[in-house]
């Protein structure tokens, strides 16, 4: 393929869809990391993949199955009322097992299972882009409100409850937002690329940024740069997009990690 094909109208919707996800997922990832729940993306992505496969088996649209599974997973996590990675590890194993067993019992399920694991960005449609736009709108609208409360709750855990607020509502709202985001991303770019977007940019940014505000800017900048590079290289070199994105994020992390914030 040639560089000119990057600008082919066929790739515009996938390019925009992935761009929006690459912008939002690392921002949510920063708060996931703050809560020490960095396994969340992988656990939720596996569960949403399983939901997509199961939806095929019962004749429902895979995106609906993925979103439904994500909401159920977030609710289960909320019921346990504990932060950390334990619940997400359990969801990861359940999702992996259910996805592969579902795929083994259906031809279309197997096809979908492969595409969810590896990503199928080039086949995303306007419905995917619309959902990504809705996600960006939610984050842009509620982001500042949510950010303040998550940070406040992290550093002063008793403050919300002492002032009559319900911490579990905050946790549930955030868990649902992460689950919704991961479900959309898994449908578009696959399990591992989704996990990489949530995990790697915050991991690097937390080390090198001088403030929270800059950490968020670093997350978005790093992620979007890696995404555009991966998108172009995957087309020009005729390579699968998911592995290319993960490779670009890992390479960028290795370059950036030696830098440390001075203060």
């Amino acid at each position: 393929m040639t560089f000119a094909q990057v600008f082919d109208p066929l790739f515009r919707v996938p390019l925009a869809n992935g761009f929006l996800l690459a912008l939002v997922l690392p921002l949510l990832g920063a708060y996931v990391r703050l809560r020490n729940e960095w396994l969340a993306a992988l656990g939720l992505a596996q569960v949403t993949a399983a939901g997509g496969v199961m939806a095929i088996l019962i004749g429902v649209h895979p995106l609906a199955g993925s979103l439904g599974a994500a909401v159920v997973a977030a609710a289960i996590k909320g019921r346990t009322e504990r932060s950390g990675n334990d619940v997400y590890a359990a969801l990861l194993f359940f999702g992996w097992s259910a996805a592969l067993l579902g795929a083994a019992n259906s031809t279309r399920g197997e096809e979908l299972s492969h595409s969810l694991l590896e990503g199928q960005l080039y086949f995303t449609t306007w419905s995917n882009l619309g959902a990504a736009l809705a996600l960006v709108t939610i984050v842009a609208t509620a982001g500042t409100w949510l950010s303040k409360r998550l940070l406040l709750e992290h550093f002063f855990p008793e403050s919300l409850a002492a002032n009559g607020a319900s911490p579990w509502k905050l946790h549930l709202a955030f868990d649902l937002l992460v689950a919704f985001s991961v479900a959309l991303a898994t449908e578009s770019i696959g399990v591992m690329a989704t996990f990489a977007l949530v995990f790697l940019p915050p991991w690097v940014s937390f080390r090198i940024a001088a403030s929270w505000k800059r950490a968020l800017a670093h997350c978005a900048g790093f992620s979007v740069t890696a995404y555009v590079a991966a998108f172009v290289l995957a087309i020009v070199l005729d390579q699968p997009f998911g592995p290319m994105l993960v490779g670009a994020l890992v390479a960028g992390s290795l370059v950036l990690l030696p830098f440390r914030a001075r203060r």
Binding site: F155, F156, S205, F206, R207, A209, S211, A215
Partner: peptide, 13 residues
Amino acid sequence: DVPLRADELLRLT
């Protein structure tokens, strides 16, 4: 390993 600045913490409260 959290990049929150002291003045940002004060703004939170």
